[in-house]
Design a protein around this nucleic acid. Structure first.
Lengths: 148, 148
DNA sequence: AATCAAACTTGATTCATTCAAGACACGCCG
DNA sequence: CGGCGTGTCTTGAATGAATCAAGTTTGATT
């Protein structure tokens, strides 16, 4: 059912339905933030053969069809997610790289408006919050105060 | 004078003053958004010999001393800037990669506050505006409507 | 069932960055 | 003011992510 759903979405986007594409979308729905490499591994774990190149091709096709989104926090390889068209943002842990979604920031509309536009036609405002996840906060704390 | 200034800043940060470091800082003050590669070229154009590795070493040292900042818009290599400690944001052209600074977004304080924190200790909110610069808007327009 | 472009495979290549080991030089101390 | 030691730089090789290129397979249309 979810699978039929995916086939339809692919066709509606003018994309052929292939085993590889079905598997990639499936993987991304189950694992909300995956690198190209992680996608490849998980697709293969589902029993679907796929080349590295095809992973990139499929991800690019899905992205330009608007079925997935690519983000790329500084210092990280590209990361793909199936949650799309809701302009959510991300919080990234500086230590372990964990990424979690943030529905939206407080003053949402304001964030789409730079104070000076310099003539740019802005179509997206991307917000990334940097910090430490709960687990890494504990590790950092014990590396400072508690180790005695 | 600007040079003396730089030497002092390096020493205050506990860094030795070398020709390479002086030149890198100088280049970054003159060219506000440069890749490691561009920095290397311009340092050499000043008549200062520097290896690729040293460029990365120097940039990393300056960054952790807080004298420069590294940003990395998705799809772009790392970019370094000397404007620091004023938490400004960036506007990036999707076509040509041009980056311009944006002093701050409208509802500034709000942008440091994700709606759900998930236990994260957030220390920075990074905002990137994506769009088309004036020149690329013109090109895009002529690629659509006007070319007949 | 035949067709053909779209999608995939294999294999090589690029670019940015990092690792490793040794040579050099900044700045301190005598 | 010259030697010393560590921090900095050089050379050379290696990595990881992504892309390019050319040929083969396959989905969907007729």
């Amino acid at each position: 059912m979810a699978e039929l759903d995916i086939s339809e979405q692919l066709r509606e986007a003018g994309l052929r339905v292939t085993r590889q594409r079905l598997a990639v979308v499936r993987v991304l729905r189950e694992h909300p933030h995956a690198t190209a490499d992680a996608v490849a591994e998980r697709v293969r774990a589902l029993g679907v053969a796929i080349s590295t190149q095809a992973v990139y091709d499929v991800l690019a096709a899905l992205e330009s069809a608007g079925l997935i989104r690519r983000i790329e926090p500084a210092g990280s390889p590209g990361i793909f997610e199936a949650r799309v068209h809701d302009n959510h943002h991300h919080m990234v842990c500086r230590r372990c790289g964990l990424i979690v979604d943030v529905s939206c920031v407080v003053g949402e509309a304001a964030c789409l408006t730079p104070s000076e536009s310099h003539g740019f036609a802005v179509d997206e405002a991307e917000v990334t919050f940097w910090g430490l996840c709960p687990a890494c906060q504990r590790i950092a704390a014990s590396e400072r105060g508690e180790p005695r």
